[in-house]
């Protein structure tokens, strides 16, 4: 079973990123579980998504150590550093995390997600770049085409209002997918 923890600021798209990833995994016929963390605040604060998937039953929605960690802000790093163990793969946002300890983690990959997404055209597509990197990390079974289908399903309504978003999202996804070799 794989355990993924995604952590970022409210507004960075952690929840919609989780939703798409879940949709991809669901169509792969895995057992899956996702639980957001949530506090009393409606806005702001650190947003977390606990994702588990695998071929065996998942009994419990949370976990203490993650196989893959995605950390998108400095505060999110402080909040979640306990979930990292020696085997964890850590993907982080180098634009916002200055804490030097993150670079010392053995399997850590820092990317300038904010800068990259602005280059594509909007900070809003940042989470799609992140999704691309997660897919590459999970490796063997996620194809770009599958991800695009899931994005279409989740963002369907938004795409009708804003067709350009689809173009940007797919561009961002591909960029992210090619970031990790």
């Amino acid at each position: 079973m794989k355990k993924i923890l995604i952590a970022g600021e409210g507004g960075q798209g952690v929840q919609s990123l989780s939703k798409i990833l879940l949709d991809i995994l669901n169509n792969k016929d895995f057992h899956i579980s996702f639980v957001p963390n949530y506090g009393v605040e409606q806005r702001g604060g650190v947003s977390l998504g606990y994702i588990q998937f695998g071929t065996e039953n998942i009994y419990y929605p949370k976990f203490l150590k993650a196989n893959i960690m995605v950390i998108l802000s400095e505060r999110a790093f402080k909040r979640t550093s306990d979930y990292i163990n020696k085997d964890s793969i850590v993907i982080y946002n180098a634009d916002l995390i200055n804490d030097p300890t993150i670079k010392k983690i053995k399997k850590s990959y820092g990317f300038t997600f904010d800068t990259l997404s602005k280059e594509i055209g909007s900070l809003r597509v940042m989470n799609m770049i992140v999704l691309g990197t997660i897919m590459k990390t999970i490796k063997d079974f996620i194809k770009l085409g599958d991800a695009k289908k899931s994005i279409n399903r989740v963002f369907g309504d938004k795409y009708i209002k804003n067709p350009n978003l689809k173009v940007l999202n797919e561009k961002a996804l591909e960029l992210g997918y090619n970031l990790i070799k």
Partner: peptide
């Protein structure tokens, strides 16, 4: 709350 907020198949 955990169970209610958990999304699964």
């Amino acid at each position: 709350g955990y169970t209610l907020k958990t999304r699964t198949n």
